[in-house]
């Protein structure tokens, strides 16, 4: 608490200097995060250096007349800094900025959605935030590349430049269902996300009927595919419906191993239909298996 009280008092005291007066402290106007550098001082005796920056404060005892050395780890958070050198009743002030290192070291990559149907244009979005090794957002433009590889190995590539630390791209989903890899790269740093490309709506639903045990009719679909030939995932609900003499029987059956299979009461003359979601399949007039 005491050091913060000192700093507050110092900043209040030196605020006129900070606002308008050029300082005797010769800090560079722009310091790249992680740079090793030193600042010369003049005079003699002991002094205390305070450096106030984003979310941290440095306090260091220095000997006037010698250079003050800064290691790579001392000033690594990007942002505006104020340096105050106090000795007795006198103080010297400098302002400078620490900027992000231009070398990308980490990417935050937001790929959305993580699951989408095949064959959609501009449906996959990738957003990249570029950071240096200290976690500073690199505001200078960076060349980014994006690559979406589907389960068959087919690739789509896009290049983009980052603006104010962020770059983005939109890409199409592929024609083949499966797990696609979405990679973003800046210099030699890359980040990968997984996009699940899933089949679209069933294209056609064909069912067949044959007599079952007792007075039952067995209904079974052919493998259900989307319009790109991808098998519709297991668990997808297929609805069978049978109408006969003013009564109706229905059953919602999940696809298992690509097909839906069920039994309904066998009524010769009954009309049996099949659908999945909003897609209708074929219709059968059941003749009792004759």
């Amino acid at each position: 608490m005491r050091i913060w009280a000192h700093i507050l008092a110092l900043l209040t005291a030196v605020s006129p200097f900070v606002a308008g007066q050029s300082s005797e402290l010769q800090f560079p106007q722009r310091v790249v995060a992680g740079t090793v550098f030193s600042v010369p001082t003049s005079g003699s005796g002991e002094a205390t250096l305070y450096i106030v920056g984003p979310s941290r404060v440095l306090q260091r005892k220095v000997r006037l007349g010698e250079s003050i050395a800064f290691s790579a780890e001392d000033l690594h958070l990007a942002g505006p800094y104020v340096a105050v050198l106090t000795s007795g009743s006198s103080s010297r002030v400098a302002q400078f900025n620490v900027v992000a290192s231009p070398a990308p070291a980490k990417l935050s990559f937001l790929a959305k959605p993580s699951r989408l149907p095949v064959n959609l244009s501009n449906a996959v979005s990738g957003v990249v935030y570029v950071f240096d090794r200290f976690g500073n957002l690199i505001l200078e433009p960076q060349q980014l590349s994006f690559e979406l590889t589907d389960s068959t190995g087919r690739k789509q590539s896009h290049a983009a430049a980052s603006h104010n630390g962020v770059g983005w791209v939109r890409m199409n989903s592929g024609a083949k269902a499966g797990t696609a890899t979405f990679a973003a790269r800046a210099a030699d740093v890359h980040e990968t996300r997984v996009i699940q490309q899933v089949p679209g709506e069933p294209c056609t639903i064909r069912m067949a009927a044959h007599p079952g045990r007792g007075q039952r009719v067995v209904l079974e679909t052919q493998p259900v595919l989307d319009c790109s030939g991808n098998p519709v995932p297991d668990g997808t609900i297929v609805s069978f419906s049978e109408s006969f003499a003013g009564t109706q029987s229905t059953v919602d059956v999940p696809l298992k191993r690509g097909i839906a299979k069920t039994e309904l009461p066998s009524h010769p003359g009954a009309v049996i239909s099949v659908a999945s979601g909003v897609v209708m399949g074929n219709e059968i007039r059941w003749n009792g298996g004759l």
């Binding site: 668990g235 009564t247 109706q248 229905t250 919602d252 059956v253 999940p254 309904l264 009461p265």
Partner: peptide, 13 residues
Amino acid sequence: SADPVIGIESQKL
């Protein structure tokens, strides 16, 4: 779970 499957038979108004 995808089970159980329930048939709704002999529906009549």
